[in-house]
Simulated assay, not measured.
Amino acid sequence: MRTASRSFVGRLLTVFSLVAASLAPVGAAALAQPLSLQQSMDATHRGMQLQAQQDQLARQAVLQQNQLMVLEAQIRTQQAIADIQARSQTPRLPPPPSGTSPKLDTSQLASIPDSKLAESNARVKAAANNDR
């Protein structure tokens, strides 16, 4: 309740200060004369209209700020998705140079004598025939 009354009092003071500011050009002589009820109501109405316009502009600024934040979040999300997609793709290897193929030194490779391979092959076949 106190917040509502403070807000009302604040707005009322704003209206009165706006009325005083709008009447300042009239001069001190005019302020010495009492305002008519109609003039006072007109000034109050102008002050309230100005306050309503300021409130509307403030709401529009908040809406624009919210829209900007949403757009920034969308951009960050799209960038993160693009980064993840870029990391998940396997890079293509360059084609081998044309012309010569690499030369292998076969002396470095393991070698099994043919007789050992034949003995191993015979044992595998014998084991396979025994299971039947």
Results as ranks from 00 to 15, higher is better:
residue 56 Q to K: 12
residue 56 Q to M: 11
residue 58 A to M: 11
residue 58 A to C: 06
residue 58 A to Q: 13
residue 59 R to P: 02
residue 60 Q to W: 02
residue 60 Q to T: 04
residue 60 Q to K: 01
residue 61 A to I: 03
residue 62 V to R: 15
residue 62 V to E: 15
residue 63 L to T: 09
residue 64 Q to E: 12
residue 65 Q to C: 01
residue 66 N to L: 14
residue 66 N to T: 09
residue 66 N to M: 13
residue 67 Q to Y: 04
residue 68 L to T: 11
residue 68 L to M: 10
residue 68 L to D: 12
residue 69 M to A: 14
residue 70 V to E: 08
residue 71 L to K: 11
residue 71 L to G: 03
residue 72 E to Q: 15
residue 73 A to R: 08
residue 74 Q to M: 11
residue 75 I to S: 11
residue 76 R to E: 10
residue 77 T to D: 14
residue 78 Q to Y: 06
residue 78 Q to E: 13
residue 79 Q to V: 10
residue 79 Q to N: 09
residue 79 Q to H: 04
residue 81 I to M: 06
residue 83 D to C: 02
residue 83 D to V: 05
residue 83 D to Q: 14
residue 85 Q to N: 12
residue 85 Q to W: 01
residue 85 Q to A: 06
residue 85 Q to R: 07
residue 88 S to D: 10
residue 89 Q to A: 09
residue 89 Q to W: 03
residue 91 P to L: 06
residue 91 P to V: 04
residue 92 R to E: 13
residue 92 R to F: 09
residue 94 P to L: 11
residue 95 P to H: 01
residue 95 P to F: 01
residue 95 P to A: 05
residue 96 P to C: 01
residue 96 P to K: 02
residue 96 P to G: 02
residue 97 P to I: 04
residue 98 S to F: 07
residue 98 S to Q: 15
residue 99 G to P: 00
residue 99 G to K: 03
residue 100 T to E: 11
residue 100 T to K: 09
residue 102 P to H: 04
residue 102 P to S: 08
residue 102 P to L: 09
residue 103 K to L: 15
residue 105 D to Y: 01
residue 105 D to W: 01
residue 105 D to G: 00
residue 106 T to Q: 10
residue 106 T to N: 10
residue 106 T to E: 12
residue 107 S to M: 07
residue 107 S to I: 00
residue 108 Q to G: 03
residue 108 Q to L: 15
residue 109 L to T: 03
residue 110 A to M: 08
residue 110 A to H: 10
residue 111 S to L: 05
residue 111 S to I: 08
residue 111 S to Y: 09
residue 112 I to C: 04
residue 112 I to N: 03
residue 113 P to F: 04
residue 113 P to H: 13
residue 113 P to R: 13
residue 115 S to P: 00
residue 115 S to H: 01
residue 115 S to F: 01
